[in-house]
Design a protein around this nucleic acid. Structure first.
Lengths: 294, 294
DNA sequence: CGATCTTACGGGATTCGTAAACATA
DNA sequence: TATGTTTACGAATCCCGTAAGATCG
């Protein structure tokens, strides 16, 4: 059974026009072509749908019965493909991403703003969760991509670096400094305020300090970066955060200084599931980011 | 936008098989043909539906979204045409007909039985109404055909004669007769039992008698032929009915005699709407009847 | 007789299949 | 390297359009 969409369209138009002549103008084909199309259709379905005399074309009872069905089929067909085309044209759809808090609360909003300006119809779901969970969400397929620190090489994940981030020291405005940069040793002489575990930032700091045999005592802990920032600004103590957070910390009244001996630098970028195709929305978003940092 | 059913079928099969190789065996085409079909489909909709590497074929997010829709489209397509084909194959459908009472209660049931034996899946609606209404129902399109006495020529109606019916005299079993045939004059010497108006039979009798200047007095009236038959059988009086009804009347205990001077003969046949196509069910039914009386 | 649908036939586009090239694990 | 997809190209098929034929009002 080999019935064509064209044949159904032809049938519907002829039925509505009650004339082959009139129909073939709408369909932009010649009468013979139309005639044959209908004839083939009727042969396929095993009976006449239209009764033609030279003066009038009327539907057979079976044709009458089939006409609404045919219209429905065409309608659904068009709806389905319009929808699909719209998805590709980014005229609707959902972009589902995750970002680690330090990133989500700093640069990501501006990325989303830019993306939204290009594709205002695409809805955006941003999950701001700790880096570990963000990556897990990529693995689980809950989000298409995560914006996090570089992850260890994994056969299941791909990483696209965007830029390099360097940890900075966060100190109160009244913290006395002679140079623009301070060392970890200097920093740790003040009470240290750290993020609570689990946290990628906390883990990185701990790993680094253990590696460098630096004494490390946490005097205060909090969950949210904003809280840490506030605590630092209040003069409770000092902290070390990705430079990503510097503007936010400074806005809260803290002071951010270059931090060395040793410096912690990490790539920040996009994690996606390896070999899993991305939606055009995700592709476009990644494209914008890569372009921005190229 | 020119998307083919084949392309959708191809997409669905490839998506299910997750392999072009496997899919093309199911589809009975070569890999290149399949590859091109999918490629064209993707071009039409404006984006990739499948992500292919040499080892695996996976759906893109858009393809994932579209797959159920595609399946649904195919399903509905097939359902629609199966249904239509079944209509033509008389594997279902409805035959809607009307018949005048004298016909409906005599020969029509046997016609229906025969039709039903040929096409057991076709439902039958029989409207047994007076001839006038039966014809009206044809004009209104409520039924496709009516089984009645011949109607006056009309541009809106067609008539296919089946056989000729001759009115017979219905008398009681004890009615004394010398010959097989009696005249109207003889008949009318007994009390006459007539159908109530409106009735085609009544009208024909009245017209005939007026035309032949025969005295006509109705002693009893009833609506149903069966009632008339019972009344005649009981010896209340006599009547004149189409020979169609003779078996029924005789079964009720009446006696039917040829009726002459003058004889009333009328064609009995099929009335249809002029130039209105008939369902295959109606066509088959008419075909059986015509064949039967040919 | 005129308008309209159908059949006949040549040209063009699309699609198919075979063979070779290409890409990835 | 082996499997599986894509490109190249010749061939078949299908569909369309022009012209002639048939049919009904």
């Amino acid at each position: 059974m080999n019935i064509t969409l064209k044949q159904i369209k032809a049938f519907v138009v002829v039925a509505q026009q009650e004339s082959f002549m009139a129909a073939c103008e709408i369909l932009h084909i010649s009468q013979p072509a139309l005639s044959i199309a209908i004839k083939n259709l009727e042969q396929e379905v095993g009976g006449a749908l239209l009764s033609r005399t030279t003066r009038a074309v009327v539907l057979t009872p079976e044709g009458e019965l089939f006409l609404p069905t045919a219209k429905r089929l065409l309608q659904e067909w068009n709806d389905a493909f319009d929808d699909l085309s719209q998805s590709f044209a980014l005229e609707h759809g959902i972009l589902s991403i995750a970002a680690m808090p330090s990133f989500a609360s700093s640069l990501v909003p501006s990325y989303l703003k830019k993306f939204r300006e290009s594709y205002p119809q695409v809805k955006i779901k941003l999950h701001d969760v700790i880096a570990e969970n963000a990556v897990q969400m990529v693995c689980d397929g809950q989000v298409e991509l995560a914006l996090v620190f570089e992850v260890p090489d994994s056969p299941q994940l791909d990483f696209i670096p965007l830029f390099e981030d360097k940890f900075v020291a966060a100190v109160s405005q009244y913290y006395e400094v002679t140079t623009q940069a301070i060392t970890w040793q200097q920093l740790l002489s003040s009470p240290f305020i750290a993020l609570q575990n689990p946290s990628n930032i906390r883990a990185q700091i701990e790993a680094l300090l253990v590696q460098n045999e630096l004494a490390f005592e946490v005097e205060f802990e909090a969950n949210q970066l904003a809280t840490i920032g506030q605590m630092v600004a209040s003069g409770l103590g000092v902290s070390a955060v990705p430079s990503l957070c510097a503007p936010q910390f400074e806005a809260l009244g803290a002071q951010c200084l270059a931090l060395e001996s040793p410096a912690i630098t990490r790539h920040v970028g996009i994690v996606t599931q390896h070999r899993k195709p991305l939606s055009v929305a995700a592709q476009s978003f990644i494209g914008q980011l890569v372009e921005m940092y190229r």
